[in-house]
């Protein structure tokens, strides 16, 4: 009985990787459209980024440089774990610096530093179906996409405004891709939505448990769903700056201060924060 300590490059068998790449190509051809794929089980639990991980493992090559973030942070425990798995099974170098990476796998954030044409950002997606707010059945939601039947989605946003004065969706705010499909941008904050629009980089989205892959290619129009008289608003951090680097232009984490009993704010993108501190120190 063999012990199988040696695994294939990037863990998954080559046929599976090929199949995932075919789904990715289809997804790029149909921006915002969810392409079903035969999601493989990985040594990481379902719901912990196996969709993004399969996309990364399928596209990564020996010349890539990898960055993995969770909630904007390279040092977060799950990011550490995913990075370790990819590094161990591929040997590719890893980095914390956004500009150095050729592939960035992320959960819940897009880095503050604008990405380039030669960079790919891979999103881990828990719930790929944006219509789940109004239709729990995937079968029915798929038909709604095919028929561009988005009336119930618009009505639900309208009802939100009537009931609460504004749309209550926080993260994973639904977007319209290329005026065609409504797409779930994964649970990124509204702060990051604008970064998807006409971006230089390729965005790939992988939902492992729900077995869907979708994409936003570079230079694609991505608009949050909004009404003319109730424009989309991103999170408001006015009056706060990062307590570490002083940034007033980044998404901030709100932290309870044990010592003072008060609150303070720091950059959620730790690489951005660190680079600002380093620049400051160099001056």
């Amino acid at each position: 009985m063999s012990t199988h300590n040696d695994y294939n490059f990037a863990f998954i068998d080559e046929n599976a990787k090929k199949e995932i790449r075919r789904s990715i190509l289809k997804a790029i051809c149909l921006p915002g459209h969810q392409v079903p794929f035969a999601s493989r089980e990985l040594p990481i639990a379902r719901g912990w980024g196996t969709g993004g991980l399969q996309v990364t493992l399928a596209i990564i090559g020996p010349d890539d440089v990898l960055k993995v973030i969770d909630q904007g942070c390279d040092g977060s425990v799950n990011a550490v774990n995913l990075r370790d798995l990819i590094h161990r099974t591929t040997g590719v170098p890893t980095t914390f610096e956004t500009a150095q990476a050729s592939i960035i796998q992320t959960r819940h954030r897009i880095p503050e530093l604008p990405l380039r044409e030669d960079q790919i950002i891979v999103f881990q997606v828990p719930i790929p179906e944006p219509l789940h707010y109004v239709e729990p059945s995937i079968e029915k939601a798929t038909a709604m996409h095919a028929e561009k039947d988005y009336a119930r989605m618009w009505v639900s946003l309208y009802e939100d405004i009537v009931n609460y004065g504004s749309v209550t969706i926080g993260a994973s705010y639904p977007v319209m891709v290329h005026e065609n499909y409504i797409m779930a941008p994964s649970p990124i904050p509204k702060w990051d939505i604008a970064k998807l629009n006409m971006a230089n980089c390729l965005h790939l989205f992988g939902a492992g448990r729900e077995k869907r892959i979708y994409a936003v290619p570079p230079y694609t129009r991505v608009e949050p769903l909004q009404f003319e008289d109730k424009p989309f608003k991103k999170e408001d951090f006015s009056g706060h700056v990062c307590a570490r680097c002083g940034a007033g232009d980044s998404f901030l984490d709100e932290i309870f201060d044990e010592a003072s009993g008060g609150k303070y704010w720091v950059c959620s993108d730790t690489a951005y924060c660190d680079s600002r501190i380093q620049k400051e120190a160099a001056v």
Binding site: R46, G47, D70, Q71, P126, G170, A171, P189, R209, D253
Partner: peptide, 18 residues
Amino acid sequence: SGFCAHFKLPHYITFQAE
């Protein structure tokens, strides 16, 4: 079980948005 356990992961960003 995987999805159930994933709720142990940090959700700072989504919660901040909420």
